[in-house]
Design a protein around this nucleic acid. Structure first.
Length: 282
DNA sequence: TACCAGGGCCTTT
DNA sequence: AAAGGCCATGGT
């Protein structure tokens, strides 16, 4: 297990003995849409209604604006420090293909984002590219989220969006997704769907409930469960993963990986999109 | 069943 | 600079 050390600094918190962490791999891989590389080794983002600054140092991570208490309460779980990635990587690397992907991005992790933000973000993500998704999400937060200073905004709660008409979302320029967002907000705010319960409930029931939302198909439901509800056995299949499955796993992912299939998918997705080796190999 | 809407980014030409 | 491909879902 990674035993990370969490220590106060005069300003903020430093975390040492971190393995398996690369901010670029984690924050710029299409699993989240609100982090920016603001300076060398420095990233700034918003999650759980809080601004977070993160500096990658030699063998450590520095959170200049987070107290030890806030780190433990919010960011420890968000960055999934409670999970032993070394153990998972060891398991995945028994397979030759997965080992290549893990070697390509050994600092990858699956974030534990807020359920509503993940659901809403991945509704926006459908039939869309990462650049544009980031723009739409940014405008959604600017128009409807609580200001947090520094020109940053919280992700708007579903309650904030109920009662809006799709015309009200025109400034987001999200096209046909506007009515999907509003329908999702109504279902969640109205209690028709309990996102919190989806952390632990039967997986197929969760999938079924999510798919009652207009605009939520199998891919989006799987993304919401994986990135928003901590369901790491979920494997969203987009075109990239579909290529990976075709070429590397025509019989499907090995059953040994099933319990962490979503994490395996994260390595493989990044590998397929960015490795010249994958692109070059017909 | 097959096909298209919606729109902006990307790659190729 | 222009053209064409891409994308997840729902509706026709």
């Amino acid at each position: 297990m990674d035993y990370i050390e969490i220590l106060p600094r005069r300003e903020g918190t430093v975390v040492r003995n971190i393995r398996s962490f690369s901010a670029a791999e984690i924050l710029d891989c299409g699993q989240c849409f609100r982090w920016e590389n603001t300076a060398e080794n420095t990233w700034r983002g918003v999650a759980f209604g809080r601004v977070c600054t993160l500096v990658e140092e030699e063998g450590a991570l520095y959170f200049p604006h987070a107290s030890v208490e806030e780190f433990k309460r919010v960011w420890f779980d968000y960055f999934d420090f409670g999970r032993d990635y070394n153990e998972i990587k060891a398991l995945l690397c028994q397979d030759k293909n997965a080992a290549r992907a893990v070697d390509f991005c050994p600092g990858m992790r699956v974030l534990r984002q807020e359920p509503w933000e993940a659901l809403c973000s991945f509704i926006i993500s459908q039939n869309n590219n990462i650049k544009r998704i980031r723009g739409i999400v940014a405008r959604l937060c600017e128009f409807f989220g609580e200001p947090l200073g520094d020109g940053l905004y919280a992700f708007p709660a579903p309650q904030r969006l109920t009662g809006l008409q799709k015309e009200d979302l025109e400034p987001l320029r999200c096209g046909f997704r506007a009515e999907y967002i509003l329908h999702a907000a109504q279902m969640v705010a109205g209690g028709d769907i309990d996102l919190q319960a989806m952390y632990t409930m039967n997986l197929d029931s969760a999938r079924e409930q999510l798919r009652r939302i207009r605009g939520v198909g199998p891919k989006v439901a799987e993304c919401a469960l994986l990135y928003g509800m901590g369901r790491v056995e979920c494997v969203p299949v987009d075109v990239w993963i579909s290529r990976v499955l075709e070429r590397m796993y025509p019989q499907g992912l090995p059953s040994e990986m099933a319990s962490v299939g979503g994490i395996a998918q994260q390595y493989l997705f990044h590998y397929a999109r960015h490795s010249p080796a994958f692109a070059g190999d017909a």
